[in-house]
Nucleic acid binder design. Structure first.
Length: 579
RNA sequence: CCGCCCGUAGCUCAAUCGGAUAGAGCAACGGCCUUCUAAGCCGUAGGUUACAGGUUCGAUUCCUGUCGGGCGGGCCA
């Protein structure tokens, strides 16, 4: 791998350093890939780093280091350039070696060692199961899935988790919405609350319940009784909804649980199917309600109490989060005795920590950033190491069609669903476009571009490179397994060596992407690799008459196809055999 | 008013955790299919990295301030 090459070069430099400047022998040596080919295959700024302490001209130091370097092996030549950079040019034979390594490793090329692997949990999506996932959730899903796969490939043990908010008021509102639609089917028609769930899927659920159970859940409800003495006025809209929920619970009695459960199962199932089709899977679906049922919320709050981080005010119980850097204290238990969402979140995170992960990663929408301080504060207050919790914020995605922003409003139920997006542009383009940007950047999602079957579309550009590789191999019709033993010495052209060097960068790209939680690094890497392959493909014929060159080039192509496939898999994008 | 994120080519974005002459794609212009897939390639053009200071061999990157944009600041989730 490139790592071998790099460590060989680093060792050579370190030896030279020990003889030129013994006092600086322990200074870390960093090798980087220069942007320009003229600057060699690797460059080191070590002379610049130590010039100050040696009080010598960095170019002179670099000159002496170069003189000490061994030549003729891996290092073809070394030059001093610029302010004192040492540019290293690697021999062609050392560069192309990567091809046989790739063919030997196959789907495992680029995989990090499990030796330093840590146990990591990635929690993502976690959307309320109160309706279809929309395009905003889609980004979190694509990002989280790619990140999890990336960390796993980098050598860590990963558990993917979806936190199901099945206990809160939003679920009650969904149950109420369903019931009101159901009642309307039996002529019990009241004005549908504007702040209840508007979507057609609610009516669909109501019809299903009617078809299965007839009028069993009407329970003598009348429009007059439901509407009597409701809080009035614009500002009481939420209170009105709560009153309706209370009446629904009262009238339905034990049957309320059925409506609630039906709506939950229906929406969660829909969500699960949607994500599965999107290539997004979870090891664990964690129920918020289970935190209450097993007393974990109570326990977490009691622990905070025991440690002296709670106080009573205005009838509510407050957590003193300002003691941990938050802007203001937060309520964990309301005046009415109900725990807040924050309370169950504390219990949830405490539970994650109890499960023994080395690291816990939460992926949240950027609008939740104000939440970070209080959650970390609560963990610290519980005596846990909040440094193990990392929050990755994902900015919003805005859709564009025909150059125009696609307007979306959740309130009016006018949002584009993830399912619609997948149907329009396909899973591959959707997965790829979602992770093409750094997660903390706003994403402009161009629907027309994602759909276009042209070189403009980066997904097809990369997939096409893979298909071309397959096509050449088909044309050749030989035994691909034999290519792993091919003699690579005929590969001496600039494009071939550039391609080999790029292939060798893949493990580093994986490592960097995993380290920075940045799947987009893989996407950009693949674009670069595909570009270099297309360039090579156009300039050189692969199936040439001379057998040794033909086999060497075929081996190179096969290696390119393997790395593209490995990279695309991390992004959840398919690598087609033909297009 | 306070907090977080951001500001790079006409547009959408990169830039190897401080490196060399800031790179791609799209849009614009000019070329390349009798040969392994033209969903491709080659070339031209495009910049005071929002602005002003500071730190040092060296700043798109780190610090301060200004301007501009996004998101937050509920006993909502």
């Amino acid at each position: 791998m490139a790592e071998d090459l790099k460590s060989a070069l680093t060792a050579a430099l370190r030896q030279a350093l020990a003889s030129v400047a013994p006092d600086c022998a322990s200074v870390p040596i960093v090798l980087e890939r220069p942007k320009q080919a003229a600057h060699g295959d690797f460059a080191s700024n070590i002379a610049l780093q130590i010039a100050r302490s040696l009080k010598q001209n960095p170019r002179d130091i670099a000159q002496r280091l170069v003189r000490e370097l061994p030549h003729g092996g891996v290092i073809e030549r070394a030059e001093v350039a610029g302010a004192g950079f040492i540019n290293l040019f690697v021999a062609a034979s050392a560069k192309v070696r990567i091809v046989s390594r790739i063919l030997a490793a196959g789907a495992n090329f680029g995989r990090g060692s499990a030796a330093d692997g840590r146990r990591v949990q990635v929690e993502f999506v976690s959307a309320n199961p109160t309706g279809p996932l929309h395009v905003g959730h889609g980004r979190g899903a694509a990002y989280g899935a790619s990140l999890a796969d990336l960390l796993e490939f980098a050598g860590q043990t990963v558990s993917r988790e979806y936190y199901v908010n099945d206990a809160g008021r939003q679920m009650d509102i969904l149950a109420l919405s369903t019931w009101l639609r159901y009642l309307a089917l039996f002529g019990v028609d009241i004005p549908f609350p504007p702040n209840a769930y508007q979507g057609d899927y609610v009516t669909d659920m109501a019809r299903t319940i009617r078809d299965r159970h007839g009028d069993h859940y009407v329970k003598g409800a009348t429009a007059a009784a439901l509407l009597a003495d409701l809080p009035a006025g614009e500002e009481a809209a939420e209170a009105r909804l709560d009153a309706l929920i209370a009446r629904a619970k009262h009238l339905l009695g034990a049957d309320y649980a059925y409506i609630h459960q039906h709506a939950l199962a229906e929406q969660l199932g829909d969500c699960r199917d949607d994500l599965a089709q999107f290539g997004v899977h979870f090891e664990n679906w964690f129920s918020e309600r289970s935190l209450y049922d097993t007393g974990m919320v109570e326990k977490a709050v009691a622990q905070l109490e025991r440690r002296g981080h709670l106080y009573q005010q205005d009838g509510a119980t407050w957590f003193r989060s300002t003691a941990f850097g938050d802007e203001k204290d937060r309520v964990v238990r309301r005046e009415n005795g109900q725990y807040t969402y924050f309370a169950s979140d504390i219990a949830y995170h405490a539970n994650k920590f109890e499960r023994g992960y080395d690291r816990v990663i939460d992926i949240w929408g950027a609008d939740h950033h104000g939440y970070i301080a209080r959650v970390k504060g609560a963990l610290t207050a519980l005596g846990l190491d909040a440094g193990k919790l990392e929050i990755a914020l994902v900015q919003f995605a805005v859709l564009y069609r025909g150059g125009q922003k696609v307007s979306m409003s959740t309130r009016a139920g006018q949002f584009v669903t993830l399912r619609e997006l997948r149907g329009e542009v396909g899973n591959d383009a959707a997965r790829f476009f979602y992770v093409l940007r750094k997660s903390d950047q706003h994403l402009d999602f161009d629907l027309d571009l994602a759909k276009s079957e042209s070189s403009d579309n980066p997904v097809y550009y990369i997939q096409y490179a893979h298909a071309r590789v397959c096509s050449v191999l088909r044309e050749w019709a030989g035994e691909t397994a034999e290519l792993a033993q091919a003699d690579l010495s005929p590969l001496v052209g600039d494009r071939e060596l550039t391609l080999a060097a790029r292939l060798a960068d893949f493990p580093a790209a994986v490592r960097d992407a995993a380290g920075d939680y940045a799947p987009h690094v893989i996407a950009f890497y693949l674009k670069d690799l595909a570009a270099e392959f297309h360039s090579f493909y156009n300039a050189e014929r692969i199936l040439v008459a001379a057998e040794s060159l033909r086999l060497a080039r075929l081996a190179l192509c096969l290696a390119v196809g393997q790395v593209i496939a490995n990279g695309l898999r991390l992004l959840g994008v398919s690598a087609p055999q033909s297009m």
